[in-house]
């Protein structure tokens, strides 16, 4: 199955690419050429009106206002993408077309994003991250770690282990690095653990972040280029609930202000590229990344180097 995209915003496009590999995992996909079209964009809408009778299009929007046969709801969620792919894989090549719509001015197909996966790319579906992205209530056992209960409805994970996300121990690190082959899962309902008083509760985000950060090992998510894709952090991650070290805080400080490639981030901060990539992956998976190829303002800093050295001496004293 080859799915290209049309008129998707950068964020959606990259997120779709990253999710697609995970969603397609385990499915037998038929030979199809499909185009995912953002019908909420003016260009996408025109494209849809012109080609929906000729080509196999998937409408992408918050609501299926064009009554499309194939529809993917915004924002992209793994579970929804997966069920769409499943549906697509179960049907024949020729799809019923929705009622003809008047053709508006012609628009050339300008965009097509082939899904190319470099050998060293990070595939979240091969790790614990993939399990979290499924948004299923589930009990996980891996790497001799206590069972972990995931309840997406409550946005929480529960386990008997008291985890300090600031200082993971080696056992916890091993768990977060676990590969899919090492993970056992059982289905779960909230009632199964409702009476347990021995469980610590954590936001799912903390686990999603930790597994991605720990298992990335310098491999970048599919579809992103280290020296071409410029990225911006939408907002600061809530480090108080996320595994982090000082390098991640420094990266966040620059990434919320400047649109830079991962390579230039590593160069500017003198942080190893592997660390930058791991941090990027974790931010991406938790939807904190914005692809932004605009050139950032390079205004002079409003702070002096003296102010920086004062803050550093405060930290030296406190740490």
């Amino acid at each position: 199955m080859n799915i290209s995209t049309y008129a998707l915003e950068n964020d959606d496009k990259f997120f779709f690419i990253a999710m697609l590999t995970m969603a397609a995992n385990g499915l037998e996909l038929s030979e199809k050429d499909l185009i995912l079209v953002d019908i909420e964009q003016a260009e996408g809408k025109k494209f849809w009106l012109k080609y929906h009778t000729e080509k196999q299009l998937i409408a992408f929007a918050y609501e299926n206002m064009v009554d499309a046969t194939w529809f993917l709801e915004k924002p992209i969620q793994l579970a929804k993408l997966k069920s769409l792919l499943k549906l697509l894989s179960q049907t024949s090549n020729k799809q019923p077309i929705v009622e003809p719509t008047p053709i508006v001015e012609s628009t050339p197909i300008v965009e097509s994003t082939p899904i190319v996966k470099p050998n060293d790319s990070f595939d979240p579906s091969l790790f614990l991250t993939g399990v979290f992205l499924k948004h299923e209530a589930i009990c996980i056992k891996a790497a001799n770690f206590a069972p972990l209960y995931i309840l997406p409805e409550q946005n929480s994970c529960l386990t008997t282990v008291d985890i300090n996300f600031r200082h993971l121990n080696s056992e916890q690190k091993q768990f977060f690095e676990a590969e899919i082959s090492q993970i056992e899962t059982e289905s779960l309902t909230a009632d199964d653990i409702a009476t347990r008083s021995d469980l610590y509760k954590y936001p799912i985000e903390s686990f999603l972040w930790a597994t991605t950060l720990c298992s990335s090992k310098g491999s970048l998510l599919n579809g992103i280029s280290v020296d071409e894709t410029k990225i911006l952090l939408k907002q600061w991650p809530d480090f108080s609930i996320l595994v982090h070290d000082i390098a991640h805080i420094r990266l966040a400080a620059i990434m919320v202000r400047r649109s830079l490639t991962l390579k230039s981030l590593a160069d500017r901060t003198q942080i190893p590229i592997e660390t930058v990539v791991n941090f990027f992956n974790a931010c991406f998976i938790t939807q904190l990344i914005e692809i932004n190829n605009n050139i950032s303002d390079e205004n002079e800093s409003i702070y002096s180097s003296e102010q920086h050295s004062i803050f550093k001496s405060i930290l030296n004293k406190l740490e």
Binding site: R250, F311, L315
Partner: peptide
């Protein structure tokens, strides 16, 4: 204390990369 340090770490990084 760790939480207060985290906030000061963020302030420090903001000054470094503004």
């Amino acid at each position: 204390r760790d939480n207060i340090i985290l906030m000061i770490q963020a302030l420090t990084a903001m000054v470094e990369f503004n």
